[in-house]
Design a binder for these strands. Structure first.
Lengths: 337, 337
DNA sequence: GATCGTTGCTAAATCTATTTAGCATCAGGC
DNA sequence: GCCTGATGCTAAATAGATTTAGCAACGATC
């Protein structure tokens, strides 16, 4: 078989000409409702056979144009490089395929320009709905969707212009911190030396996680101090040096360590490896990664409940729910404790 | 701003009616060559202004139909859950956007049915080219592309129906194994006790990696034995138990361990953690992961050169190169040694 | 006064598929 | 002989763009 780059594709017109029928008949037959339109079985068989012989494949873009629906569903997310976003993408694809649509997932590397450009491309492609995940400010994208009359939903980070499905950061952090406190006290240490590491103050997720962390401390009778929280951003280098600074300042490890994201965790491990410091303290992490889960010390990991989140997100695409614009909280799952 | 789900979109006809001009004029103006067609600047400005006011956005599917090109570029890959595939997807998207197309990346979970179905959907959407990554047998997909006259390229695993871009598994394995042997001998141990772990015998990548592994041994004067290679598949559980079996059989760790994939690595780490066995041997891995790179022992990691691979893949889409159907080998990068 | 050139547009074809209204034919009933 | 209903299709409109050929009007040129 030789490559036939550039050859023209078979259309229903070609099929119609070949069987000497009208395009309408061909269309009806190929779409399966020839009996409803009283087309003879023999005719329909001839058409089907010829279509197969000519290698006819429907042009979904022409169909989409006629029907004014594209068969495409879009999702925007920052990247695929951690399990949360990878799972989001795969779960989205699965759900979209189940609805007989074709998924378009595009990563934007957290670049606002790219986010805007990608969104407008997807809307110009007339996606039937758009999932917006991990975008710092979804408002602008929500507005674009609104103008294009395309239903959309915010995932992971909430926005006011559409329904939002978000992990219950506060409840999750509360839960893990309680576990950590139990463990700290079980080993005879003090919950006064706990540390929250990572994230960016002022960010939705970080603020809620901190709130949960502090609440658990208060519930345990600990009075939170400002040096119990170190928002050092997401880059491993930053958490590495922030953690080092903490240890040097206090002359010891914290008794319990709450790590706010997987990349923050990376930095902590890097510190531990490079300084040959065993992480001899209770550790919890708001994120999950198979490698991190196999590290030589126990980590209480919170895995975001991607499946539930996506199911809820798909359900929020109906008109009424589009208008409601709720923030729907999904509790994360404690993976290991 | 209220949601306007279902509202009709503005077309060039609406704009034409609003400014009392013909659709052709509107199209000409909106496509930027109004001066070539001698349309008055004033007219063009009126059209532009009105289009903006009406919120006109081009319908790429209509344009695509007319121009018989979709503006879409497709890629299918197994999943996003390791850095190699995640990087492939992101690099693909970048390259596609640079060419002013819209990327459609779809994961298939290594399910042949899904691969076929997704490929035919993408072809029916008239993607302008298709990247096929990590598919065990690309031949069928290559044939579909050929029939649809869509250029395609196989990445990661080669196929005979299109050009293929593949990591140089053999050369990479050779290099890492040499490093391992050096390290083994430097610590006074014997290169006779090395182990290749993971992969599936008969698979392209595995076979080539084993070939490189064995060649390095021979070059170092070691006579390979069959118990130096354990193809236990990709699942962490399998490599965990295979490694355990090896250690029990020999009563000690191998002197040097060549791990064939990141999930195999996961299993080894899991074994090491669960049995509290320090991995006190030279370790190399044909794959890269940030967490694995930070483990408390040095691992020589081979990172596939995704950027080069994708650049070569994009270049292989021209007609001549489509016909050539070469296998293009890209050396992987030694990440840490 | 015929021709030419320029200006500023527009009509119409095209891309491929869907879908509704309706045409043509024939048998059967009254 | 006329009407009805069934049968088996087809014509034509439609979806929303792009693009080429060419029209109309007017001044300039020979």
């Amino acid at each position: 078989m030789t490559a036939r780059v550039g050859r023209k594709k078979t259309t229903i017109y070609d099929v119609a000409a070949a069987v000497d029928a009208s395009v309408s008949t061909v269309s009806l037959v190929l779409n399966g409702d020839w009996s409803r339109y009283r087309i003879k079985e023999e005719t329909s068989e001839r058409i089907l056979k010829t279509a197969r012989e000519l290698g006819y494949k429907v042009n979904l873009r022409a169909r989409g144009l006629r029907l004014s629906k594209s068969g495409l569903a879009g999702m925007i997310l920052p990247h695929y490089r951690n399990r949360f976003f990878a799972d989001l993408a795969e779960t989205f694809e699965l759900g979209v395929r189940k609805r007989n649509l074709c998924p378009i997932v595009v990563s934007t590397q957290r670049d606002v320009e790219v986010e805007l450009k990608v969104a407008s491309t997807l809307l110009a492609q007339r996606v039937e709905f758009l999932f917006i995940a991990g975008v710092a400010d979804p408002a602008a994208l929500n507005r674009m969707c609104d103008e294009a009359s395309v239903p959309c939903v915010n995932v992971d980070l909430p926005g006011t212009g559409a329904p939002s499905v978000v992990s219950d950061n506060r409840a999750g952090a509360l839960l893990v911190t309680q576990k950590l406190i139990d463990k700290v006290r079980a080993t005879g240490k003090s919950a006064n030396d706990m540390l929250f590491l990572g994230g960016v103050a002022g960010e939705y997720a970080t603020d809620n996680r901190i709130a949960g962390f502090l609440e658990a401390l208060r519930q345990a009778g600990v009075d939170p101090r400002s040096d119990m929280v170190s928002c050092c951003g997401y880059r491993p280098e930053n958490s590495s040096s922030a953690f080092r600074a903490y240890v040097e300042r206090h002359g010891k490890l914290p008794s319990g360590l709450f790590i706010s994201s997987i990349t923050t965790f990376e930095g902590v491990v890097r510190y531990s490896v490079s300084t040959a410091t065993a992480l001899d303290c209770a550790v919890g992490c708001f994120d999950w990664d198979p490698f991190a889960a196999d590290l030589p010390f126990t980590v209480a990991m919170l895995r975001q409940d991607v499946e539930s989140m996506m199911e809820i997100a798909f359900n929020s695409l109906t008109t009424e729910r589009q208008l409601a614009r709720d923030i729907l909280l999904v509790p994360p799952i404690l993976e290991r404790a």
